[in-house]
Design a protein around this nucleic acid. Structure first.
Lengths: 140, 140, 140, 140
DNA sequence: TTTT
DNA sequence: TTTT
């Protein structure tokens, strides 16, 4: 039976997205994202930061490469995926990543501007290689 | 700044919850949860299953121990937490877990009944049991 | 700036989906969905049910019409939309609907079977019309 | 059977929270929240704004009153609730609200500062009145 | 009635 | 490695 595997994050990029192209030209972008939580411990403020490995595919990777940068605040929706790999010593390891399905930039307008291509909005972007533009012919 | 770190899963338990008690008596339950996704690959149906390590604390662990069992369908809300540990060979490894904040049992009513304690509903349970003080006595 | 408007529901259909076709042939399905919450009030169990107006468009409406039925348990993801209309007396009223973006059937396998098309799984279906259209070749 | 009724919003307050106190002293805060979506229609950018009626109870209302203001960007998690009421003409109407369960302030640090009480972080706050009440000793 |  |  089908299930639900959904992750919702709001946090800051720890680095610029790193983009690779697979054989076939498929783009893959990845970057670390920090989500911080502040709580009281014995009357003192303590901040705890969690780091997430974000992965974006195809068109979503292209948009990420264009608009996301280290330090930016972003809303990300995706799913968890754990995969194994061998490190340089040949030891099998596991890593859990958040495969993004869409994202929305948050924060000030200036955060969304790049030298080359100033934008006037933070847009939601989907991993659907097109636009999900339900809106074109709606009657409302 | 605070961020958001939220996971929403609907899946089946791969095993009965395993409950430990830390020094101080704090209960911790853990179990694997499978979320399956079915998609078409070249006209054929392919099922892909993702396994998640679920961790529940305190009162939530107690409820899990009492009512969750291998095979049950459950809705879980929580957050991601990656921690490192050393395996038996002394090699540093990382594991990402979903620390549950609440859960709701789904499925037939009979799925919620245990021999000892028949229940008439699936309830939402929270990790609050007093205080949200997940942090105070954690071993991490 | 862009924002987030997301609704996640797990509940039972109160009626079979009702499908209309707009000029242009666009399909729209709608149905009520009940989400129940049980809590303790003075030591007694009380159930509170909330009803939601679900709306599905295009391909998603077609799949809904084909597979969803009164009583089925379903996971729905969508967004809130409030619109105004005039009732028969000409009084302006407002209604808030959940415009579904995808759904996944939950529950027993037999719940997903129809006379015409027995199915072996519940699939996730998206309102993306052309991309990610799991729906094209269902039974999924 | 229990279900899930969850709403996740990121948007701006349209007005300052309005706080009332019920008999018994229970605080209720309410305010409109705008979530905007930008999409392309015939090559032109179109923005569509959805307005949500947010309601917060008890300790959460107090924190809202203290820190939320018109224009602020906020993440809100809650549930849908539709209730009926009679307008001045005695006509029965329905309204759907988002009953917030917790919120997190987003945006620039300066957005979280008030004249009276400059703050250094945005915190997550919960509607649990006594438990998990981060709110007691704010500024958190 | 917000924001970009 | 982010942000406040």
């Amino acid at each position: 039976m089908s299930g639900i595997n959904k992750v919702i994050l709001v946090g800051h990029l720890g680095k610029d997205p790193e983009v690779r192209h697979l054989e076939g030209g498929v783009a893959v972008a990845s970057f670390p994202l920090a989500t911080s939580e502040t709580f009281n411990k014995d009357g003192r403020k303590v901040e705890q930061t969690e780091w997430h490995n974000i992965v974006m595919w195809r068109g979503l990777a292209d948009v990420a490469a264009k608009y996301l940068q280290k330090g930016k605040l972003v809303y990300i929706e995706g799913k968890l995926r754990t995969r194994s790999f061998e490190d340089k010593e040949g030891i099998k390891k596991y890593t859990t990543e958040v495969v993004a399905e869409n994202f929305t930039m948050l924060g000030r307008k200036t955060d969304f501007e790049t030298e080359a291509a100033p934008r006037t909005n933070g847009g939601r972007t989907n991993d659907t290689d097109g636009y999900r533009n339900d809106a074109d012919d709606l009657p409302f």
